[in-house]
Design a protein around this nucleic acid. Structure first.
Lengths: 222, 222
DNA sequence: CGCCACTGAATGAACAATCATTCATCCAAG
DNA sequence: CTTGGATGAATGATTGTTCATTCAGTGGCG
């Protein structure tokens, strides 16, 4: 197989080439950062490996010292960044004691991330779906973790009686993620128009919507 | 510009080639149907024009008699099918009198469509995002209409006092769409596992969640 | 009626780029 | 001197698009 592979199927030999801790460590990170920028701007399929190499300040071939293929580069990007996001999410809810408080935090944190990390958010929002469909082999466990954080909070809330227990936590988790993700997409694509533009405002509304939909105590907060 | 264009940028000369009502009409439709199948299976970028031609039973060149480019084919597909979906959605809510009833119908109808029209649903769920990002020029008005159906119902419900009016209808519309879309994605990708698999069940839960989150009368229905 | 020129839809082989990937070579550090 | 990370020009498979050619259907004409 030569060029134009990119069937986004998981590469056969698992794992990227050896970590390569040689000369200039940190080169792998530079490449990942460059990839974020280029993927965000061009989209995965339109992004050229040479563009990424340029942006990273390395030679084309160097990328293949750290990543098995263009596909592997994308996958590695997901793994790496998703891990950070999950950490941030878990971190955000430690201070909260109620499930409702945690849900609010999750939504706000997610949209904060979108706002403060636009390029990465674009990659996630747009390319993650492709991966979901094409990297079948690639289970994308990190994204599963992400959803599980949401589902966990909901399940806790149900257990404590704070939330009604007639809804399936994993399903609600997906729905909530989908809602927030779609808002993020509108924000990222739409540029600077509409009130949707105000992500903080949007976060408030989405939180309220879901919390009102979930809580047992049915008194709308002012 | 020769090959590998596909920047998904709107084609310069607007509109596909002349309708071509000549010899075999219906050929355009055959091509569109073939495109759905192939795009669903391979994804837009991995789909070869020749595969579509094969599936449609026409020659490669024939496709360019009906569509300006591969990109144009995808756009045309969106336009064409989205129109049908919108019609179906509008149709589904005519019989309902309450906003709440309409919302339920919309969610169920959407997920019905996913279940009964898998290939097209895959294309929409996965490729529509790309288009949102890359076909900037292409406003995708039909998708706007789709969202407006949801927003309209919510606004009506607010006006009639049926729904609380502290949430922005377009925002909620997006959120609801996002939630349903994500459920659809999980269903389409996940194959046959989990309770999520039961889309009818999922539709019920999502409806309930949003309706409870929106209604003014805050008494949870059994 | 039969024939022929004409139209334009359809074809598909050929074209022209494009790009992911490779690898012979270089060179800095140990 | 040796090692192995880095380079980037070269490769060659791939594929969107074109266009010269084919040919079925049409209608004018004798």
């Amino acid at each position: 197989m030569n060029n134009h592979s990119s069937k986004l199927k998981t590469q056969s030999k698992r794992g990227s080439p050896a970590p390569l801790v040689g000369r200039d460590s940190g080169k792998r990170d530079r490449i990942l950062e460059a990839a974020v920028k280029v993927f965000a701007r061009e989209g995965f399929y339109n992004a050229k490996v040479s563009q990424i190499a340029d942006a990273a300040g390395v030679a084309d071939g160097t990328i293949y010292l750290y990543f098995k293929s263009k596909d592997d580069l994308l996958i590695s990007l997901f793994e790496d960044r998703m891990e950070r996001i999950n950490a941030r999410m878990r971190d955000a809810i430690t201070s909260e004691t109620t499930a409702i408080g945690k849900l609010e935090r999750l939504v706000h944190t997610h949209l904060d991330f979108v706002q403060s990390n636009r390029p990465m958010a674009e990659v996630f929002t747009v390319e993650l779906r492709q991966s979901a469909k094409f990297i079948k082999e690639y289970a994308n466990p990190k994204f599963g973790d992400f959803l599980r954080i949401f589902a966990g909070v909901i399940a806790e809330g149900q257990a404590s009686g704070e939330l009604a227990n007639d809804l399936d936590p994993p399903l609600v988790a997906r729905a909530l993620f989908g809602a927030v993700d779609e808002i993020a997409l509108a924000y990222l694509v739409g540029g600077t128009r509409k009130p949707h533009n105000d992500l903080a405002q949007a976060a408030k509304q989405i939180s309220k919507l879901f919390i009102e939909g979930l809580r047992t105590d049915r008194r709308r907060t002012p």
